[in-house]
Design a protein around this nucleic acid. Structure first.
Lengths: 193, 193
DNA sequence: CAGATCTCCTAGCAGCGCTAGGATCTAGGC
DNA sequence: GCCTAGATCCTAGCGCTGCTAGGAGATCTG
């Protein structure tokens, strides 16, 4: 029995090793550099070992994305907790979100442009998916007025996502990022609240 | 001389044929189905012919994207021209933009997620790139108040882009799209202007 | 110690973007 | 009208991709 638990433990460790290697490789050289051969070399095993842990390359990216969702939720929570007023909270959460996207572009890509097999926007979805959205929701809710807080949060989220994507791809110059964020916050939290 | 002009004309036609085939194939089956072999078969030539017209597959996608920018600019212009008030104009332009993204997802992808070798946000950029942004700018400008109209337009554009992307990938349910757009318009054009 | 099981690697498949080299067809000079 | 020069286009192939079949080897069980 002990030998089996040891094997399971070792298997779990190796699985984590794969995810970590994939993430680091992606963040260092982009997802296009993450090939199954390269990844196998990195963990010092042969290619087929990857497929004994994951269904395919996409599943590995999904596993990385899940890590990202957990970390993003934490960062949003920290940012919101440190804020004082209502407008401050929204600004803090927004800044934390776009910072995350800018500083971990590969991770953000795995979460929001690849890995579509994750279910979003469902009340019974995985916790790590709901937590991050919940932080946004709590920041937006006080500013909703008569509007549906959920839909408004989705809209705000989309704005942040759009900013992150367009700035990341060079379609919008990053220099004006703070300025754009400021204007966005101004539209969602107009008064000095 | 006539034979040479005939050749040039035929060459230009074939180049257009390639772009059209790539676009139709992408819109029918997605960009992952657009391979150089498949494309060559579609235009009934061999693979290397593609490379006598374009530097590579990326250049073909860029050519498709350029077509997209021209068409998007037209649709935004039409939408804005048909609108009456200030708020109406913003709503019309926003709806036209997201409609474009939803109805031509492959084209939109070529424009805004692939084909990064196009220069954005430069005053001396190609006309087709500036026109679409110009339409947005003219719709946003009257609502800028003390804020920088250019930056505000960029922010609004990012919001539309984010909505389009998240709804397209299934991360936000499409059903509430109109609702989200309504809330977004409400934040950028608050009063009944 | 023998046999069953489980782990892992070598080798290979089909497809990808892209390119070198030669065949074929056309155009112009005598 | 032929014959050479040049443009046009295709066949074949390179190195890469994600993924998988099959067997070798180590490990655990009786």
């Amino acid at each position: 029995m002990t030998t089996q638990t040891r094997r399971e433990r070792e298997r779990a460790q190796r699985e984590q090793l794969i995810v970590t290697a994939a993430r680091e490789l992606a963040e260092a050289e982009g997802w296009e550099a993450v090939t199954t051969r390269r990844l196998a070399a990195e963990i010092e095993y042969s290619q087929p070992v990857l497929y004994s842990h994951f269904k395919g390359k996409g599943a590995i990216m999904t596993a990385v994305a899940v890590q990202g969702f957990e970390e993003l939720a934490v960062e949003l929570r920290v940012a919101r907790a440190a804020a004082r007023g209502t407008r401050d909270a929204l600004a803090a959460v927004a800044a934390a979100y776009t910072d995350f996207a800018q500083k971990r572009p590969a991770l953000y890509d795995a979460m929001f442009t690849h890995a579509v097999d994750l279910t979003f926007a469902t009340p019974d979805g995985p916790a790590y998916l709901r937590e991050g959205f919940g932080e946004l929701l709590q920041a937006v809710q006080p500013l909703a007025g008569d509007d549906d807080p959920g839909i408004l949060t989705e809209t705000f989220w989309a704005s942040l996502h759009g900013l992150a994507m367009l700035e990341r791809s060079g379609r919008l110059p990053v220099e004006a990022h703070d300025h754009r964020l400021d204007l966005l916050i101004g539209r969602f939290a107009p008064a000095e609240t």
